[in-house]
Write a protein that binds this DNA or RNA. Structure first.
Lengths: 214, 214
DNA sequence: TGCACATGTAATCATTCGATAACTTCTTAG
DNA sequence: CTAAGAAGTTATCGAATGATTACATGTGCA
C-alpha cells in the first residue's frame, strides 16, 4: 500500500509552477473563506492544495501576499462575471432581453456556489483597520461600485440596493444559515426566503459542496 | 516619578469584580471589532482594559467564552435600542409620529458610532463554519430577524430591505470607508452618500473616535 | 549523456498566544 | 485587630504558526 501511495503521490507531483500556483490559489480561496485571514494557516492551505507548507510560503512570499492575491482574483472573477452578464444580450425564452440590473443580479446569484470566493472578500471587508489589507479591500469595493455606476449605468440608489442585497446574501453564506434551513428551523426558512428570493436553491447547493477541513 | 506612577496605579486598581468585568467587556468589544475573533489577543484586550492578561482569561474562562459574551451583549444592546425606538411614540416637531421602520432605522444609525459593537457582530457573522461561534451567530441573527417580523411587525420584504442595508452599513464601517471619504476620494464620497443617506455624519463621527491600538 | 534549473520536501527556528500556577495585596466581617 | 476571601499580578509553559535553510528529485536542452 505504501508503494501505491508513493506512486500516486509521485505521479501527482511535478506540475508546472504556473499550474501549481492556480491549485494553491484555489485552495487558499476556500481556506481563507472558511477561517478568515488570521484564522487560516499556510499549512491548511498547503494541505488543501496537496503540497508542503514551505512551498506555499516561498511561492507567495508571505501569507499576507497570498491573501491579497486571493482577494484580487476574487474581485477580478466577480467583475468578469458581471461584465459577461452585462454584455450578454441574447433574448430569453420569451424573446425579451432582461434589464442589465437583472442580468448582473442573476450573475451574482450564480456565484453563491463559490463560497470561498465571496467569503474571502467578506473577511477582507471587515479588516479595514489593517493598513495593508484594509486599503486593498477598500480599493476592491470601490472598483465594484465604480463598475456598477460607470459601466453598468446604475443610479446611486440602484447601486446601493444591489450592493446591500449582495452584502446580505454574503452574510447568509458566511453564517451558514442554510444549515438552519436544512434543520427545519422555521425562522431560518422564513429569513432565507426573504433574503434570497428565487435563489435559495443556489445557496443550498453551495451548502452541499464539501469544504476543506482541518 | 515611579512613586507617582505607582500611586496612580494603585488608586486605579481594586475595583469590584462586577465593574471590572464591564470594563473588560467594553474593551473586548472594541478589540474584537477591530481585529476579529482570531486576530484579537487576550493581551490586547487586557491592555485596553488596564489589567493583566491572565486576569482576563481567568475571569471569562477562555477567549471563546469572552467573545461569546461580547456577541450576546452586542445583540442585547442592539435589540434593547430597537425596542426603545419601537416603544417611543412621542411625536416629532411636526406633530406626527414616525413609522416604526423609520424609528428603528434611526436607532440603528445611532449605533454606527459604536464601531466595536457592530463589527464584533459582523466578525461573528462570517465565522459560520466555527461549530460554537457559528451556531451562536446564527441564533443571534435569527433573534434580530424574529424581532423585526414579530415585535416590530415588518413584512418579509421590509425585514429583508432593513437587514440588507444594515449589512451594507456594517460593511462600510468594517472597511473604514470613511477614511477614503476624508481623503477626498470622489468615488468613495459617492458610495457613502448612496449607502448612508442622512447618516453620513454619524459614520464620520464614529471614524473620528479613537480605537485601541497595539 | 549530463548538467543546469525548476519543482518540490524535511527539518527546524523564533515568536506569539492562550492558559495555568503560584504569589501578593487590599478589604472587610466578626 | 485579624483572619478569610476577593482582586489582581508575575512568571512561565506548551502548542501553534509563519518563515528560513538546506537538501532532494525530476526534466529539458546543448
Amino acid at each position: 500500500m505504501s508503494s501505491v501511495t508513493t506512486t500516486l503521490h509521485d505521479t501527482a507531483t511535478r506540475m508546472r509552477a504556473e499550474d501549481r500556483r492556480e491549485l494553491i490559489l484555489e485552495a487558499a480561496t476556500a481556506v481563507f473563506g472558511e477561517r478568515g485571514y488570521v484564522g487560516a494557516t499556510t499549512d491548511a492551505v498547503a494541505r488543501a492544495a496537496g503540497v508542503s507548507q514551505p512551498y506555499v510560503v516561498r511561492m507567495f512570499g508571505t501569507k499576507e501576499a497570498l491573501f491579497l492575491e486571493v482577494l484580487h482574483r476574487a474581485i477580478a472573477r466577480l467583475m468578469g462575471t458581471f461584465r459577461a452578464a452585462l454584455a450578454d444580450t441574447t433574448p430569453g425564452p420569451d424573446g425579451t432581453v432582461e434589464h442589465p440590473a437583472a442580468r448582473i443580479g442573476r450573475a451574482y446569484a450564480d456565484m453563491l456556489s463559490n463560497r470561498g470566493l465571496l467569503l474571502s472578500m467578506m473577511h477582507a471587508f471587515v479588516l479595514g483597520a489593517d493598513p495593508v489589507i484594509g486599503k486593498a479591500a477598500r480599493t476592491c469595493f470601490l472598483d465594484v461600485y465604480r463598475f456598477l455606476r460607470v459601466e453598468a449605468g446604475f443610479s446611486k440608489e440602484e447601486a446601493d440596493v444591489f450592493l446591500a442585497h449582495g452584502m446580505m446574501m454574503n452574510t447568509m453564506v458566511g453564517l451558514r444559515m442554510a444549515d438552519e434551513y436544512e434543520d427545519g428551523n422555521p425562522c431560518a426558512i422564513d429569513l432565507l426566503e426573504a433574503a434570497m428570493p428565487h435563489k435559495l436553491d443556489l445557496l443550498l447547493n453551495a451548502n452541499a459542496e464539501s469544504a476543506p477541513t482541518s
